[in-house]
Design a protein around this nucleic acid. Structure first.
Length: 557
DNA sequence: GCATTGCGCGCG
DNA sequence: AAAGCGCGCGCAATGC
């Protein structure tokens, strides 16, 4: 038993290699980070349980520690109604332990949690390796646990965000910030002007509420513009003087409502934007975020993301990740050759004798299940030229249509069909035999989902392993060569650590002392090579990173 | 009055 | 012939 958890953890970290086994990083780690303590490695029981349940077709079961323990012991689940001591400032180490701590004394609650941890951890270790169909599953659980650490660390670090630049941008585009929080004066001047012009151009007698699709549709119709919806892609096809105004209004209104001043007030403080990341929040293993729509930050706002003085942003994204993943997955020699280096769309275009743009659309159609429109012809060419790669996604689509499950390369598993889906499709297992058109639609929709899942989820596997690898190498980054040291980003030794501050599916942003930018860039490239080996083993396919070292996020690419 | 659903759009 | 994948969030409309 210790009295200062954070100090005890820090001491243990200093003493050498340790892997903490804990209920979840989301529960435990933010508190440690607030105390300035980072850990190197962990086994995240709840993230792991979630992966195992999905793999074993039990994703309807809860992944919480107590529930997992109850499944193993057959005893009723310990109540977790009372919030675990994560809310306390610094309680005893009941939420985490490593093997050498097991003999120590513990109080009643700590003992119960500890028992559950021991039980579930042992079970998970056994289960991880027990399924021959998912041989790399251990890589996935390790990376997912590391992802939990990265997520908490990124929230703690925050994305550097200059509120005054954001404010200037809004003022420039929308006019001054409206004084009133509500009422007619609430709308910024530029939006009000546009609304007036639009109503006039439509010849409307009364002002139209442009934020109401129903009203707008009616007003358009009255002006002789008949469209199935008011979405931008539809309006763009219409030739009418009101359309450019309407498109501009939509663009600015979106900025105002989604990322305007109230967003700024709510989500940015102390020069940082701190979203909460949800590891594995998407079925494909992609992350989600809670609050602030962090994964949908509009590109114009990247101007407000600026490195601290003397620091840089290293912005790195995996070029053309998904088609490369397909190439590595499918074992198609010809396709892998096209993805071996350079621009994959160029190479594919050359291989099938089409323009690059057509080849790209065709390839995306193959992965998304679309007809391709213009890419339809390319799609046919792709099938002929790359039969194995096409066959791979087609097989995934067929599995989905027939109600079967598919998995990512590391074994992340898609959800089974819902009861509603099963009853609708009648479990016939043959989409060709459907009578009910809804059944056919549902079947094909699931086919598109599983077709995309194998690629998107495997890409998420790769990105997660990259992130985990990069995190470890950044923690070991060399001396900063006189860069301004900051206590809040130093390991206990006092050396500044480059910080991961953003992760968006196939892109990472590292905030580091400018002198370390080259080192970080090299670490990113090395992490991509390592991720490729860990996820795909030996493959001809390359996964190049496009990296920019910038002061401002908007200067990247 | 509060919760849910649908539309629309930002990101990948 | 028609359909393309995955999200989060804000607003308006609808349901209770």
């Amino acid at each position: 038993m210790v009295t200062d958890l954070a100090e005890a953890v820090a001491e243990r970290e200093r003493s050498g290699s340790v892997r903490w086994v804990w209920q979840s990083a989301a529960l435990v780690y933010p508190r440690l980070l607030r105390c300035g303590v980072r850990v190197g490695r962990c086994h995240d029981v709840e993230l792991t349980e979630s992966l195992l349940l999905g793999r074993d077709g039990l994703s309807d079961q809860p992944a919480r520690l107590a529930a997992a323990a109850a499944r193993i012991t057959g005893r009723p689940a310990r109540s977790e109604a009372a919030p675990l001591p994560s809310a306390e400032p610094a309680g005893p180490p009941q939420l985490l332990f490593d093997e050498s701590d097991l003999a120590g004394p513990a109080d009643h609650l700590a003992g119960a949690v500890l028992d559950d941890l021991i039980t579930v951890h042992a079970s998970q270790q056994a289960r991880i390796g027990a399924d021959r169909q998912t041989p790399r599953f251990g890589v996935l659980t390790t990376a997912e646990s590391a992802g939990g650490l990265v997520a908490a660390e990124m929230t703690a670090a925050g994305l550097p965000w200059r509120a005054e630049i954001h404010d200037e941008l809004l003022t420039e585009l929308l006019g001054p910030r409206p004084a009133a929080a509500v009422g007619p004066a609430a709308r910024p001047a530029r939006l009000a002007e546009l609304a007036t012009e639009i109503s006039a151009a439509l010849g409307a007698v009364r002002p139209v509420n442009l934020d109401s699709p129903t009203q707008l549709l009616r007003a358009l119709s009255a002006a002789g513009i008949r469209v199935p919806s008011t979405r931008v892609s539809v309006l763009r096809t219409i030739d009418h003087p009101v359309i450019p105004l309407l498109l501009r209004y939509k663009e600015l209104a979106r900025l105002y409502t989604a990322n305007g001043w109230s967003w700024l007030d709510t989500w940015v403080s102390g020069g940082r934007f701190r979203p909460e990341y949800i590891v594995g929040g998407v079925v494909s293993g992609r992350w989600a975020t809670r609050g602030g729509g962090a994964l949908q930050i509009p590109k114009v706002l990247r101007r407000a993301v600026v490195a601290d003085p003397g620091w840089s942003l290293v912005v790195a994204d995996a070029a053309q990740l998904e088609p490369r993943v397909l190439a590595a997955l499918a074992g198609d020699r010809a396709f892998a050759e096209s993805a071996a280096s350079g621009d994959i769309y160029d190479a594919v275009a050359q291989a099938i004798g089409a323009e690059r743009a057509k080849a790209k659309v065709g390839l995306l159609s193959a992965m998304y299940g679309g007809s391709g429109g213009d890419g339809g012809h390319s799609l046919a060419l792709l099938r002929r030229r790359f039969p194995q790669a096409s066959g791979f996604v087609e097989a995934a689509a067929r599995a989905g249509e027939e109600g079967r499950i598919v998995r990512s390369v590391l074994g992340r598993t898609c959800p089974p069909p819902s009861a509603a889906w099963l009853s609708l499709t009648g479990e016939s297992g043959d989409p060709g035999l459907e009578r009910d058109p809804d059944a056919g639609r549902a079947s094909r929709a699931r086919g598109r989902f599983t077709r995309n899942f194998v690629v998107q989820a495997s890409a998420a596997d790769w990105a997660l392993v990259l992130l985990a690898t990069l995190r470890t190498s950044l923690a070991r980054a060399g001396e900063p060569d006189g860069a301004p040291a900051r206590a809040d980003v130093a390991w206990p030794g006092g050396r500044p650590v480059p910080q991961l501050v953003f992760f968006q599916h196939d892109e990472v942003v590292v905030h580091c002392p400018a002198s370390q930018a080259d080192e970080v860039t090299a670490a990113v490239d090395a992490a991509a090579v390592t991720a490729t080996r860990l996820v795909f083993g030996a493959t001809e396919v390359s996964f190049p990173m496009t990296t920019a070292v910038v002061d401002c996020y908007s200067d990247a690419k």
